[in-house]
Amino acid sequence: MLEKTLQLSVNGLMAGAVLAVPAIGLTMIYAVLRFVNFAVAAHMAVGAFAGYMLNAWLGLPATAAVLGAFIAAGAIGIATDHVALRPLRGHRALTLAIASIALNIMVESTIRFFFGGGPRDYSIPLRRDWRFGFLHVGPQQVENAAIAMVAMALLFAFVMLTTTGKAMRAVADNPMLADSKGIDPDAMARIAVGIGMGLAGIGGMLVGLDTSIDPLVGFRTILSVFAAAVVGGLGSIPGAVVGGLTIGLSEELSLLMLPATYKSAVGFLAILLVLTLRPRGLLGVKAA
């Protein structure tokens, strides 16, 4: 039992580290714009396919293609937000969330139009797992976790150390006060969306590197991503990291008690528990 629990924990932590990246994207957009942007799912697919083109078609190493995934998903995120969601700013959060679902479907359908619905694979070698006694871990899992940690570290440095990052935090904290200090909320919104969707793109590619990609790669993950953001506290970047790891661990450890077919229910259960017991999430400072 100990062996099984430890192995599931390793799998959960690896999956959680990857999950945390798009969860940060979701929570960052929420922090600045105050609505849950479900189009994160489609932008995970955008990043996954951008990375695929760079890696499988142009021959770039997967680690370099991850940067391309960030840029492509971020740029397309800003463009789609400008066209579809920005005109709705000022409406209720529910209106924007519903609009983001529509946007998500449109972006996914566009990817399907150009790439088809079938699965695609990155041009990376398939490697056997590394074994450490009774535990094992895949080299790709480790690389993915490392890329996720680097992305998160860079984001923390940006948010904590740069003027723009501080301005963004100011807008997230108090938009009116930030506005009175001459911070352009529109510019901050664009940056938040660009970085948030870029992180979603990285998340999509990381998921695909370990499995395969298709236009629904983000759709299949969005429940866990949303659960991670809610558990950590919507709007809290450290919370999204903790939430990602919590959901990753919970989904895998649930196999100790539940049949595998109920794995998806763990995300729903986590959201339900958090909303009932601690609506602001583990690290959130305000009620969501």
Binding site: Q7, T211, R220, E251, E252, L255, A260, T261, K263, S264
Partner: peptide
């Protein structure tokens, strides 16, 4: 065993 086909990975 019935597994959850909607997940991205089946490692566990």
């Amino acid at each position: 065993v019935i597994f959850d086909g909607k997940k991205n990975s089946f490692r566990s």
